[in-house]
């Protein structure tokens, strides 16, 4: 009886009696969700264009952020370092296309997936060789990002909104919107969608596959860089950040591998649900349930929607 009370009654009493904490939890879930969505977006972009599940997306987050703080530590001004980092992400995209993707055209998806695993370990080793393994401080203030907080007294308590979290949500939102416009309204975006539908058909109408791949890997690189900056500002920049990228997996299960809106909605659902469940139900289960709850939530959705929330329904003629 007590268990039932703790599951079905107690959490809601807490929500009602301490609404400031409820809002705080929802806010933290929202911020985490937007950042998960951003990571998931990197996966979706590459999967849409090439059918490759890019295992290296997590290390690209670390690599982008490390390049930025590494260049800054060499005396390069923050904004110049940021511009150079964007260039580095472009060079990475072009290198990956030329030396990883191009030789594997028409291979099975699993081969391409394995290649991205190889790429992950190469980038880990290369990153540690160039930047060292020790954590670095994100140059938050130097980039003009705010570091203070807004303290709002409401509902008999205090709601603390970190300015960096507000920035993260805004930047993530802006990037998602820009990418959505880019892929829906521009010629390259339409070409990308054509490639996603059918490689050979796209090539037959004059779309260059190599060019598209460079563009999507570059776009995924920019997304990774933005995620690295935001998450690095919340903690520090270390190789541990790549673990965060694993959080994109339940988002992708939920939202579908090919849908940009799916990544956004999936990210928000995972972010909000994991924070709510950890905060209100976690202590009853021994805590630290955030590690597995997102997968559980995603699996529940899959029962009802096997293609994910926005995934394409696959109908094949037999």
């Amino acid at each position: 009886m007590e268990i039932l009370f703790n599951i079905f009654i107690q959490p809601f009493i807490e929500m009602f009696t301490a609404p400031d904490l409820l809002i705080q939890v929802l806010w933290e879930g929202f911020v985490s969700g937007t950042l998960y969505a951003l990571i998931a977006l990197g996966f979706v972009l590459i999967f849409k264009a090439s059918g490759v599940f890019n295992f290296a997306q997590g290390i690209m987050v670390v690599f982008g952020a490390l390049s930025l703080v590494g260049l800054y530590s060499l005396g390069v001004p923050a904004y110049v370092a940021l511009a150079l980092c964007i260039l580095i992400m472009f060079l990475l995209a072009a290198t990956v296309e030329r030396f990883v993707m191009r030789p594997l055209v028409n291979q099975e998806p699993i081969i391409l997936f394995m290649a991205t695993i190889g790429l992950t370990f190469f980038l880990i080793g290369f990153g540690e060789f160039v930047f060292g393994g020790e954590p670095k401080l994100m140059i938050t203030e130097e980039l003009g990002l705010p570091t203070g907080s807004y303290d709002i007294e409401a509902f008999g308590g205090l709601i603390i909104l970190q300015q960096i979290d507000i920035s993260a949500a805004l930047i993530a939102g802006a990037m998602v919107a820009a990418l959505a416009v880019f892929f829906n309204k521009t010629r390259i975006g339409r070409a990308l969608r054509a490639v996603a539908d059918d490689h050979q058909a796209a090539m037959s109408v004059g779309i260059t596959l190599q060019q598209i791949w460079v563009i999507v890997w570059f776009a995924a690189g920019i997304v990774a860089l933005a995620t690295g900056i935001m998450w690095g500002a919340r903690s520090d920049v270390s190789f541990a950040l790549q673990i965060i990228a694993l959080k994109a997996l339940p988002v992708l299960i939920l939202g579908g591998l090919t849908s940009i809106p799916g990544a956004i909605v999936g990210g928000l659902i995972i972010g909000l649900s994991e924070k709510m469940l950890e905060f209100y139900w976690g202590p009853m289960l021994g805590g630290s349930i955030e590690s597995w709850v997102p997968y559980f939530v995603a699996l529940i959705f899959l029962w009802f929607m096997p293609q994910g929330l926005f995934g394409e329904r696959i109908i094949e003629r037999v």
């Binding site: 807490e14 301490a18 904490l21 705080q24 939890v25 933290e28 911020v31 985490s32 998450w231 919340r234 903690s235 541990a240 950040l241 673990i243 965060i244 694993l246 959080k247 994991e274 924070k275 950890e278 905060f279 976690g282 202590p283 021994g286 805590g287 630290s288 955030e290 590690s291």
Partner: peptide, 22 residues
Amino acid sequence: LKVPVGVKEMQNQSSHWLQVRK
């Protein structure tokens, strides 16, 4: 009050600390 932090959540502790706040 025990607050475990999983390895995957090392850099994602906001809900753990909200627990502390509560």
